[in-house]
C-alpha cells in the first residue's frame, strides 16, 4: 500500500480518473469527517461576481492536478482550455476557485488570441482536501466549467 502511494506513476491528468488506492482512501478517510464542505454561498457569490447569472456548461477545460498534494502550502496546478484562440473564437478569461479555502477565489487569468493557447501552470495554497473549480469565459459569451478534487496531506513531519 505504501509503495503504491509513493511510487505509483501517476500523471497529473490522472486526477480526473481519480479512484483512490487503498492507501489514499485511508489517508482521506481520516480527513473526511473534518471536511466541512465549502461555504456554498461564498462560492456562489465569488462565481457570480465574475460571471454574473450565466449558466456554465461542463467541458472544454482540462485540469491538471496532483492526485495527492504533499503539502497544502504549495500545490502545483494547471489547466488547458480547448479553443482555436482566433480573433473570432478564443478564451477571454479563466477563473479558479478552491471551495474549501477560507476565501474561495484563487486567481483569474486573461488571454488574447496572441496567447496562442489558454494553458497555465501555477502554485496555490489549499487549506484542506477540497474541489478545484475552473470557469472559462469564451469570446462568444459562453461559460464552461471544470471541477475536480485534490486530496491534501495533513499531519506528520511535513504538515
Amino acid at each position: 500500500m505504501i509503495n503504491k502511494l509513493e511510487m505509483q506513476p501517476v500523471t497529473r491528468r490522472d486526477l480526473l480518473r481519480y479512484a483512490g488506492t487503498g492507501a489514499l482512501a485511508a489517508v482521506a478517510a481520516g480527513l473526511l469527517p473534518a471536511m466541512a464542505q465549502a461555504d456554498a454561498k461564498m462560492m456562489a457569490d465569488a462565481m457570480k461576481k465574475l460571471i454574473g447569472d450565466k449558466k456554465p456548461t461542463d467541458g472544454k477545460i482540462t485540469l491538471e492536478l496532483p492526485q495527492i498534494a504533499e503539502n497544502g502550502r504549495t500545490v502545483p496546478i494547471g489547466f488547458e482550455v480547448d479553443s482555436p484562440m482566433t480573433d473570432a473564437d478564443h478564451v477571454k478569461s479563466v477563473h479558479i476557485f478552491a471551495d474549501g479555502n477560507p476565501r474561495p477565489d484563487v486567481a483569474s487569468f486573461h488571454f488574447t488570441p496572441q496567447s496562442g493557447t489558454a494553458k497555465v501552470g501555477v502554485r496555490i495554497r489549499l487549506a484542506k482536501t477540497q474541489n478545484i473549480v475552473a470557469l472559462a469565459e469564451m469570446s462568444d459569451g459562453s461559460v464552461y466549467m471544470g471541477k475536480a478534487p485534490v486530496k491534501v496531506t495533513i499531519g506528520g513531519c511535513g504538515g
Binding site: 505504501i2 496531506t153 495533513i154 499531519g155 506528520g156 513531519c157 504538515g159
Partner: peptide
C-alpha cells in the same frame, strides 16, 4: 524509510 509517520512518507 518508506513507511509513514502519520500522513507523511519517511
Amino acid at each position: 524509510p518508506g513507511g509513514q509517520m502519520r500522513a507523511n512518507i519517511l
